[in-house]
């Protein structure tokens, strides 16, 4: 099956990275499963998911070792880190605007005042009076 990388230390690093990666993936899934409301789940999925897969990608980079593979693996990690937060932002905004009910114990909701007074939807930078592009 997996051919070893030749020196045992690298094997151990690869396995360690892969295992921690997998562990964080589990964290992400469980987070999505058990957290009470959408926004909490969203941040769990984004952060833990990206970290978990990132670690696996690093493990792959370490495992192959040549330049081509490492750049590609790191590019993968970069893409993940780039896209995950944006996806979270976008879906969070949409859900919040459509009035998803927050967790009953939420202490402070700083966004609430922007939504209730101005408009059903938040116009970007509306707090800074600038006409929408």
């Amino acid at each position: 099956m997996t051919t070893s990388t030749g020196h045992p230390i690298l094997d151990i690093i690869v396995v360690a990275l892969a295992l921690t990666g997998a562990f964080f993936m589990i964290v992400a899934s469980v987070g999505v499963l058990r957290l009470p409301d959408l926004l909490l789940r969203m941040h769990a999925a984004t952060k833990a998911g990206a970290l978990g897969t990132g670690l696996v990608l690093v493990a792959v980079a370490v495992y192959f070792g040549e330049v081509g593979m490492t750049t590609r693996a790191l590019a993968g990690v970069a893409f993940l880190i780039l896209t995950a937060p944006v996806a979270a932002h976008v879906i969070g905004r949409a859900s919040y605007a459509s009035g998803v009910k927050l967790w009953k114990e939420t202490r402070r909701d700083e966004l609430a005042e922007y939504y209730s007074t101005h408009s059903p939807t938040l116009v970007p930078g509306s707090e800074v009076r600038q006409d929408p592009s």
Binding site: F79, L82, T83, V86, H89, V90, V123, P124, P132
Partner: peptide
Amino acid sequence: MMRSLILQTFTRLLVTLM
């Protein structure tokens, strides 16, 4: 069109990348 500043700034970068 989604007027989300974050998405717009990010799209400029990502479209070139893609």
